[in-house]
Amino acid sequence: MHLPPIASVVWYAIGRFYESQDGKSRDLGYFAHLGGIEPLFAGPPGEATAFFTFRAEPFTSQTLQNGDLSVSLEARGGFTLYLNREPRGDFSKPDTFSQGEPIATFERFSLVVGTTVGPIVNNLFSAALRSSVDFTFEGRTWNLADLLPGGITQLGMASSTEIPPPPGYTKVIPFVGSAMALGREPRQAGR
Rank of each mutant, 00 (worst) to 15 (best):
M1E: 08
V10K: 04
Y12Q: 14
A13Q: 10
I14R: 06
Y18Q: 04
S20M: 07
D22R: 03
G23H: 09
S25C: 09
R26N: 12
L28A: 10
L28H: 06
L28W: 01
A32Y: 06
A32G: 07
G35K: 00
P45V: 05
A48V: 13
T49V: 04
A56R: 02
E57M: 00
S61R: 14
L64G: 01
L73Q: 12
R76L: 15
F79L: 12
N84M: 12
N84L: 14
P87N: 00
G89M: 05
F91E: 02
S98H: 12
G100W: 10
E101F: 05
T105E: 11
T105P: 09
E107D: 10
V112T: 15
V112K: 03
V117R: 09
L124P: 01
F125S: 00
F125T: 02
A128K: 09
D134M: 06
F137T: 02
G139D: 14
G139A: 08
R140L: 13
T141G: 06
W142C: 04
N143M: 07
G150Q: 05
G150M: 08
L155T: 02
L155D: 00
G156Y: 04
M157G: 02
M157F: 03
S159A: 06
S160W: 00
T161N: 08
I163E: 14
P165L: 11
P165F: 11
P166L: 15
V172Q: 03
P174N: 00
P174R: 09
F175V: 14
F175T: 08
G177P: 04
G177S: 14
M180T: 15
R187T: 13
G190P: 05
